[in-house]
Design a protein around this nucleic acid. Sequence first.
RNA 1: GGGUGAUUAGCUCAGUGGUAGAGCGCUUCGUUCACAUCGAAGAUGUCAGCGGUUCAAAUCCGUUAUCACCCA
Length: 1029
Amino acid sequence: MTMDKSFDATTAEARIAAEWEAANAFAAGANASRKETFTVMIPPPNVTGSLHIGHAFNNTLQDILVRWHRMRGFDTLWQPGQDHAGIATQMVVERRMAERQEPNRREIGREAFVEKIWAWKQESGDTIINQLKRLGASCDWSRNAFTMSGAPGAPKGEEGNFHDAVIRVFVDLYDKGIIYRGKRLVNWDPHFETAISDLEVENREVPGHMWHFKYPLAGGETYEYVERDEDGNVTLRETRNYISIATTRPETMLGDGAVAVHPSDERYAAIVGKLCEIPVGPKKHRRLIPIITDEYPDPTFGSGAVKITGAHDFNDYAVAMRNGIPLYALMDSKGAMREDGLSYEDSAEIATRAAQGEDVGDVSNVNLVPEHLRGLDRYEARERVIAEITAEGLAVTYLHKEIDKETNAEHLERRALVDAKPIMQPFGDRSNVVIEPMLTDQWFVDTQKIVGPALEAVRDGRTQILPEQHKKVYFNWLENIEPWTISRQLWWGHQIPVWYGLDLSLEGQVDDDHDGALDEVEIFALLEEGLVHRDEIHHAAPHFAEVVEQFRDSIAGLPQPLEIARVIEVADRASAIDAFAQGLADYNLSQDPTKLVYPVWRDPDVLDTWFSSGLWPIGTLGWPETTPEMQKYFPTDVLVTGFDIIFFWVARMMMMQMEVVKNVPFHTVYVHGLVRDEKGAKMSKSKGNVIDPLLLIDEFGADALRMTLTSMAAMGRDPKLGPRHVEGFRNFVTKIWNATRFAEMNGVRGGGARPEPNHTVNRWIIGEVARIRLATDEALDSYRFNDAATGLYAFVWGKVCDWYVEFAKPLFDGEHAEETRATMGWVLDQCYLMLHPVMPFVTEELWALTGDRSKMLVHGDWPTYGDELIDAEADRQMNWVIALIESIRSARAQIGVPAGAKLDLIVTEADASARAALAANAPLIERLARVNAPQDGAMAKGMIAVAAQGASFALPIGDVIDAAAESARLDKAKGKALKDADGLRKRLGNPKFVENAEAEVIEETREKLAALDEDISRLDAALAQLAAM
RNA sequence: GGGUGAUUAGCUCAGUGGUAGAGCGCUUCGUUCACAUCGAAGAUGUCAGCGGUUCAAAUCCGUUAUCACCCA
């Protein structure tokens, strides 16, 4: 058999992947030889996704851990799967529909749209799986999971019970009061028309403007406005009839509820509690709002006064809540100015009463957008508001001077004061549109109630976060956690299992005469009084049938005959009102109680994707069923993930698993960095610096890419990746391939037991193998992937290829040939074994090529030997030999001896141990240093000197020795040795060092110094001889 | 504004108390039969600055500067 000159990754990888698959090599428990389990949950990629470099990195690290444990005989499960990624997937499918000019989702309706997404999921869902397989990911693909499996409408092939787990947890948390519904200010994405969580908002600095406007005091009142410098000197004093406000969002002025100043701000003390006028809107119905104090305004920033628009700004919301300021919503779900609700005139009237302290109740119907601005986009409305205020002279102005170039005339003009400055603006991370804080009804997880155990588990070490620095981030976020908005106004996702019904039980209004039954008059009153304004009650249950029972209980207390109404499901609230009214009317005519219905409707919203992926560890193992997998593999062992989803995912998994199954989801979280481009920049499509891992695999092979990423995986650092790095590791693949090829050409076969050779070289390399095995396990044990990879790289290239293979060459003809073949076969086997977790393909291929194996390498047995294989004498001798060869090579090169020339090697001096090393390894030295067999002799003219531990050598290089060059070479070496020795001597001369330093360190220092002194004396001798000639 | 991290060879980065390393690049040499996707030899450093702790600091502490990221 002859091997090719290099590894053909493209064809071999596909073939090997198929072999692994055919052998079921990655199945849970494959190759298990012990009881301990090792479980890793893949961070589920988006189902729309394709493999990017971050996935390649993340999954390489997981695969290393998994393959390593599998080879060590652990009962190993790497659980794969995909995330339905609600907003992202819905976006992708909608975009595709638009591109194909198909009807949009509202036109085709929810059911058809969801069906389309499922179809698309099935079409594209395998893409990422196949890409992960190309990377070599050894997941148990037969267990592939999906966060929407088993949801209503799921097509064939998507039966799983993840949906059951999600719904069950929702209902459970609902019943415990941990999930609640509330009207709160949430981040609203006007593009997708859905609420999103804080984490899905990206704050970016963008160029913006700050406008300054005057809010005139009510009734033309005035006050003395005084500004002082730091020392209290008056810098400005004027009489003002207004308070100046700065804003970056003038359109929200329409919804202002107050102007706030800091309680310590003396400039405004006189007017606190008075009313001022919002300088926009129809003159006739100008709104007045109070001037209040609050800790929020910063007196040193701008005018020190801020407008409070509670319904459109999170800070203002907090101020409004503290001070009882009404929240006036101005915009609709698309971010346009509202068109619904009361007229501006009526609205302004109510708002004015509210400003004067009157309790006006629910203001959701109040629409303070003047009629001429209704329906406008928020940015258009902004321009109009600015223009109107400026036209009225209520913008703060400055005097602008312009000189006419032709006439030299000065033009003075008052201009509106507008600061152009960068402002922080919130953007939707998916839609890239500016997020609008909106007051809406949403579902929330009261995270405060479940955060405790998640914090505790990390504090007491039940779950370890590596590197440790990320613990702080985790604590910091969880300790200040906000309620989690989990409802999304989307169609793709787990529909919230909550049904609503009208609350008919309010304050005895229904049954006016309290006789426990409705008479005709009361029925009509109920209908006329306006069901529309009634509140709602809601219940949660996994299925409609169960929720019916709960509604029956709810209406049981209602007056006759409502208490026996049939609970039916309708589409929405409006249908419910219609159906209820119809039922009542029918009953009134017929007195037939079966006509009475109590219609309920289901919440149309779906759950945040992260709510379901938060259950990934248990959901994929079959929970809520009590499955054998759940019992065996939970809690899982290691979660490997990027720092960017610690909050999104890790923290939530911790909270949810602790709450639901009262156990940590994993023992260790290994947090890796973000792969950056060669210059350290974040990869992004817009920058065009994205590296496609599949292209790198095509060009260099998966092993090379994996090895590159692994060698860069220093904990807590971001790997910086460029193609040339991968090229270097591709060369490494070729290197080990060719070492094997050399071995094969010399009759070496793998698969044998560890030999017990006699030759020093063979004994030495076995000890080196033992060392790297210990180092590799230690590195992997502590998640120092880069140390494992670079250690193996240096061992295979620097020890095995550079030295051992070279040493072995002369041994193949002679008495040690057999043991050398056996040793080399074994050494290479160990290389394949230890490299396999990082470079699975080429090692599997070499494993198959080099011997008759009982198992594939993927199920190879990870070595366990250690120090006992190190032969100290062989170690000493080979290090001596290597040092000598390097010295001779160095001397030859510096003096300029032609590389091909073979020189005599004269031993001028040697102690017993040097002689022993020389005798045992002379042929190796002759070959690698290109010298003739050593012979005793004396230094003479035309020779250069080479020193080794315990020995001196001379190399005759012919007549034309350049004495000056030789003496320069020796001087240089001596200089360095002197300098080093000097440092060491100083250190040893310091009594404090001898007193305090560890004995080992002192001993080491002494030995070093002794060796240096020996070198120096040899160099001196050589120099003296040179001078004498 | 708050937090975290970084600053080491021309470049990209390892290195957590004992006098600095790798890969790439560079220079010189080499077609010895595993590999030119190779081999041999070599050059290159105030370990960001300043203080401190220590017998000993790239490493620990403080501080300054610059950069990056996260959160407001």
